[in-house]
């Protein structure tokens, strides 16, 4: 009955592959398509937040901190509601991380504040005795790279259709507009900080890395 098939091993192999692949496809594709949509109300990063995200990546924060809260009570008690995939829709790349030398940071904006981060990044053991995290004092003097952040935002807007400048979404605008907005955001954060050098720098129109990083940390929730 199946001689025609049994005599053609290559055709048979292809057929078997197609049948199994079909089952996989109809299970995986609809789930993927739905889960990769941004959750309602999710905003793309502002220019300042994106620059902070670059600082986060540059200093390899993700080597010790994850950004993924799993649905276990022990995790949600400590870090807040579990993560869902739509929350990472504008993360390119996502920073899930695979090792927690430090705590998870996916919702750190819900329970840590600007002044706490300022103390902590300057000298972690001043607020968390016993912390093994190094201090990141250079972030208070180096300036954030807004140009690269703008280039990324513009690229994802054009290539991946990230909804910058669409009604109800984060405004990006031209380089001048975006830079002006980033400086305004930075001023709000600097107002809550105590380091005089950082305040002076922002008043001069510079954006130290720490300000961008705090903007990014506060946006995580």
């Amino acid at each position: 009955m199946f001689h025609w098939l049994e005599q053609r091993p290559f055709l048979f192999s292809v057929g078997v592959f197609l049948v199994i692949a079909f089952a996989g496809l109809i299970e995986i594709v609809p789930d993927f398509a739905q889960a990769s949509r941004p959750i309602a109300g999710k905003q793309p990063y502002t220019l300042l937040q994106l620059a902070g995200r670059h600082v986060y990546i540059k200093d390899s924060c993700n080597a010790c901190h994850s950004q993924l809260i799993r649905p276990f009570k022990s995790e949600t008690d400590r870090y807040g509601p579990y993560s869902v995939s739509g929350e990472y829709a504008y993360d390119r790349p996502f920073l899930w991380g695979s090792k927690r030398t430090g705590p998870d940071l996916h919702r750190v904006g819900e329970y840590r504040t600007t002044d706490w981060h300022e103390n902590h990044m300057w000298e972690p053991t001043s607020v968390v005795p016993g912390s093994i995290m190094p201090s990141y004092k250079h972030m208070f003097t180096q300036n954030a790279d807004l140009e690269t952040a703008y280039a990324e935002a513009l690229t994802v807007k054009k290539v991946f259709n990230v909804p910058y400048d669409k009604p109800g979404f984060t405004k990006l605008g031209s380089w001048e507009e975006a830079k002006k907005q980033a400086l305004e955001d930075a001023k709000k954060i600097a107002a809550e900080m105590k380091n005089q050098d950082v305040k002076d720098a922002v008043a001069r129109g510079e954006i130290p890395e720490i300000v961008a990083l705090i903007a990014y940390m506060n946006s995580l929730h």
Binding site: E110, Y111, T113, T114, D115, E192
Partner: peptide, 11 residues
């Protein structure tokens, strides 16, 4: 005056 304290409502 010192800083911001987050709300623990629901947490």
């Amino acid at each position: 005056f010192i800083g911001t304290m987050v709300s623990f409502k629901g947490r």
